[in-house]
Nucleic acid binder design. Sequence first.
DNA 1: CGTCCCACCTGATTGC
DNA 2: TGCAATCAGGTGGGAC
Length: 272
Amino acid sequence: MPELPEVETIANGVHDRIHGRTIRSVWTSNKPQTFKTPPDQIAEALTGSRVDRVHRVGKTIVVDLSRRRKTMQFLIHLGMTGRLLVSTPDTPIPPHTHAILTLSGGSGGIKELRFVDARRFGRLSITETAYEGPGSEPLTISLEDFIVLFHHRKTPIKAALLNQSLLHGVGNIYADESLFRAGIRPRRQVGRLTRAELGRLRTALVEVIRHAIELGGSSVSDYVDADGVRGFFQLEHRVYLRTGEPCLVCGTPIQRIVIGGRGTHFCSRCQK
DNA sequence: CGTCCCACCTGATTGC
DNA sequence: TGCAATCAGGTGGGAC
């Protein structure tokens, strides 16, 4: 999936294109797995609602809606391959499209917000209470809270970074990239990391995420932002998907191992 | 409860 | 060329 930087890029792009518009009609596919809230309830909640704001919480895109003084949120989790496209109605509908919202009210005529998801790991839902997400935001958590979060855990640090109930928004790319930049091996037990190492990790994580947001995220395969334009952070990857290639710092071949079922890339010389 | 592992899907790429 | 194996940015649930 798009991780935090990609989701932020997409949410901002969609906000710019559709905020202030009103949803006139909704079409959904009949694939039940996609809909955490049943599709007819989603359609009922969206139809006639105005889009006040599109933002993100963790890896979830949150669409703030209002209708007759009542507020709701439309939650979009992109899974691994989910895409959110703003199109004109005459644009051909891509395969694996699962929801189409028809929007009126802005300049440039009728627009459609389309949710497309080949692997169907994405999820759509409606909530009436403000969505907060399961964990802490990596960009704003304090150093002390960051240290407390990982206190006394036994899992490898890589697995802990991917655990969304601790930090939300970090995925496989930015876990590997931040561990490389902090010089920490992905298998290290979290509880055994020093305060200094956790401090380096937090700094590296914030830097790598901020830098990725500036570049519009990473687009390795099928992530595309709301404009259909790709991000450029993949050019900055130092270990992710570079198995066997020389480390950009020391030349040692990058290794790939599996932690928690996820491919994990690191430099055995630069990371201790 | 914490941790591990697999299932959920399709598509691109690699290797025989 | 064809076909099978492997890999992919994520999560949730069951087993232990």
